[in-house]
Amino acid sequence: MATAVKSRRSGPDAPERGRPARPVSPERRQGRAAYVFLTPWLLGLCLVTAVPLGASLYLAFTDYNILSTPNFTGLDNFERMLGDERFWAACAVTARYVFVSVPLQLVFALLLAVALDRGLRGLAFYRGGFYLPSLLGSSVAIAILWRELFGHDGLVNDALAFVGIEGQSWLQNPSTALSTLIVLNVWTFGSPMVIFLAGLRQIPEQYYEAARVDGASRLRQFWHITVPILTPIIFFNLILQTIGAFQTFTQAHVISGGTGGPVDSTLFYTLYVYQQGFRDFDMGYASALAWVLLLVIGAVTAVHFVLSKYWVFYGDD
């Protein structure tokens, strides 16, 4: 028995008798600690993101109504989109919303940030107050408030009646329903405004002093100093707000009652995905729609990055 134990310990990898074990290096110890702290995030990434993402990709190629086993149908769901009139209506509504509301929101946020950067007393209070709509803008409560404001008997029509103008039911008119949601998105300008304000604080005052010595007006200072230096921050806000606008759902769902009306004028793409998946229980088609949205967002973001080299200026340019 002793001979067998001795033979198992023999060999080039066997530790020498009496020699202490090699201590663990601080780098390896820190690496192990990092993996321990990253474990919850990695589990969340796999269980909450990666697995559902893979499942939805599989379901996009199936006919699945939750109650039965998924039936693989290939590209049928994607071919169905080509003849789906409501799909194209949702694409048109979402495109108008994104490409109108995002530029307006960024322009309004930048101008207000410039105004607040002029040494306004109580800046922290105003900054917090203007940022608040960004926290509440996507909530159900604000959507309900917006519905009451722009309803037939809402506060907007009361204000118009006070000056002798007869109002209308803004949310029931197909030509104005989407505009009210665009105004709501512009109203949530607080998040990009705070980022713009932080960028303005990093611009050296010497640039403006030199421009004033040369006789440049405030408008010329804004266009030739402020805007070029802020282009990286403008680009950052543009990407974030564009992606967020493509994913807008709560406002349209609450204001239209989940129908996208009137006459599909507020049928956002995400709302149509919701209708297909959780109202009609057509999970296969809803998954295919969701993947198309993901690809569109990726393509639009890629286009922004390609075009950014023509108008975004960094410090080393």
Rank of each mutant, 00 (worst) to 15 (best):
M1Y: 14
M1K: 15
P15D: 09
R19I: 10
P20G: 11
P23E: 07
R28F: 12
Q30W: 13
A33V: 14
A34R: 15
F37N: 08
P40I: 06
L43S: 04
L43D: 07
G44T: 12
L45D: 02
L47H: 08
V48D: 08
V51A: 09
L57A: 13
L59K: 01
A60M: 03
D63G: 06
I66E: 11
T69I: 12
F72I: 11
G74K: 13
L75P: 02
D76K: 13
D76A: 15
M81F: 15
M81W: 09
M81Y: 04
D84Y: 05
W88V: 10
V93D: 03
T94W: 01
A95K: 06
V100T: 13
V100C: 06
V100S: 07
S101F: 00
V102G: 00
Q105E: 12
Q105F: 04
V114I: 10
L116N: 03
L120S: 03
R127C: 05
P133R: 03
S134R: 14
S139F: 08
A141Y: 04
A143R: 02
R147L: 12
E148R: 11
F150C: 03
G151A: 07
H152L: 15
G154F: 08
G154Q: 09
L155R: 06
V156E: 05
A159D: 06
L160F: 12
L160E: 06
S169K: 07
L171V: 10
P174K: 08
L178G: 01
S179T: 12
S179F: 14
T180P: 04
S191H: 14
P192H: 06
P192S: 11
F196A: 02
F196Q: 00
R201V: 12
Q202W: 01
I203L: 05
A211Q: 04
R212P: 00
G215N: 00
Q221S: 12
H224F: 08
L230N: 01
I233F: 06
F235P: 04
I243R: 07
A245L: 11
F246L: 03
T248L: 14
F249T: 05
F249R: 02
T250N: 14
H253E: 14
G258R: 04
T259G: 08
S265D: 10
L267E: 00
L267H: 04
F268W: 09
Y272V: 04
V273R: 00
A286V: 04
A290C: 09
L294C: 14
L295P: 07
V296P: 00
G298P: 02
H304V: 08
H304Q: 15
